[in-house]
Nucleic acid binder design. Structure first.
Lengths: 146, 146
DNA sequence: TAATTAAGTCAGAGTGTCGTACTATCGTCA
DNA sequence: TGACGATAGTACGACACTCTGACTTAATTA
């Protein structure tokens, strides 16, 4: 109706991000993982396979330690992750994906693949690959954590 | 240290989005617009120049009417927007950008331009344009609202 | 070994979001 | 023209998320 001016890139990034997130949540819920909030997922998503420390997760997700601790509590109660002492540092504990957490992974990956396929279908494979490559490159200047 | 597998496109979209948002907020705060939260901004950003209805904003932002009403209350109290009756519908009210709101726009636009310039500098102009074009195209399949 | 730094927790407060229920107004059609 | 279903918005209550500040425990450094 009234869009002569192009949206800024920030908003353009946000729109598909949100669409992807919504699809993944709907799919997880349909597969029985219906406790699981976006905030929890943003932490869960960054767990290293061998486990991550709270402080590390907080830095990566751009949240405080307290917030991540709160979210990990919930994930732990729901059986998605477990905490164990870090053998290399008595102060630290490692947050690791637990059995139920592992089960979400193929489900989520399947939905992501499905959405990506739809996008590739719309954009064409070549541009989809360009998008992925450009975003990965952009990460080097926008992700303070690597 | 440990990133052989590529991140999914959702997360790759989120990282620069978040970086852009953080920069805009820091800049607005530095310019004296230090009340102004991300949630408020996500609504404010979608206001049509002639004013928008609450329901319309809610649909675009993917929020409920109540949530948007709550955020608009705050924006109104802070002088960024004003509400007026919709001459075409007695039930509706138009939310319009108010004087103080208009003043944020060049500031925000300047920061967005600055960040985009940095990105273009890193990616090269050609790929920056590709990114913009691809995202705009992707919007047709990911934005349920247009 | 004392001082400093780092990992994590606890407590409290403020913000953001939703579901349900309600009022007022609009549009339609008998 | 007036009754009825749909739509715009508000009110209230609950819960999720996030932060700040203060604290505990363990590691590191001097």
């Amino acid at each position: 109706m009234d869009d002569p001016e192009p949206l800024n890139v920030g908003l353009l990034l946000f729109i598909p991000y949100r669409a992807m997130e919504a699809r993944v949540f709907a799919g997880l819920a349909a597969a029985g993982f219906d406790d699981f909030t976006p905030a929890q997922a943003r932490v869960f998503q960054r767990l290293a396979p061998q486990g991550s420390r709270l402080t590390e997760l907080a830095a990566q997700a751009g949240l405080t330690k307290q917030t991540v601790g709160f979210l990990v509590d919930q994930l732990e109660r729901a059986g998605y992750v477990e905490r164990m002492p870090d053998p290399r540092d008595g102060r630290a504990r490692l947050v690791r994906i637990a059995e139920r957490g592992w089960r979400t992974i193929p489900v989520a990956a399947g939905i992501v693949a499905e959405v990506e396929a739809e996008w590739a279908d719309h954009l064409g494979n070549r541009r989809m690959e360009q998008l992925r490559a450009i975003l990965a490159d952009l990460r080097t200047v926008t992700d303070p954590y690597r």
